[in-house]
Design a protein around this nucleic acid. Sequence first.
DNA 1: TAATTGACTTCGC
DNA 2: GGCGAAGCCAATT
Length: 108
Amino acid sequence: MTTFTARVLATVRRIPPGRVATYGDVAELAGRPGAARAVGNIMRECGARDVPCHRVVAAAGRLGGYGGAGGLKRSLLQAEGVVVRGTQIKDFARRRWLPGRTFGRRGT
DNA sequence: TAATTGACTTCGC
DNA sequence: GGCGAAGCCAATT
């Protein structure tokens, strides 16, 4: 499949544990910047369980308006080592996953 | 094919 | 800093 959806899913799958990405970033990485809403729409289906939709958060580092009533997403992220402050990621700026910024990349 | 929706983003008040 | 409105893109009906 070579559609935007497939790219989004592939991008989200590339998000390593302990890291998070925003809808806008995923959309951009997928090749369609500004399609944040589309990404959300695609994520909603979560057709592939390999897609850690819980690692996808809003731009401000917020978990989004979903994630379950009790904040399922928050628990999942925290379980991966992500510091979450209520509905917002504390170290979001440092937890945000970006291409070329994978693990092992320290402050050098 | 056209219109509506949706897990978003950004500007303005 | 919080609330409201407009814009963008893809999927669904």
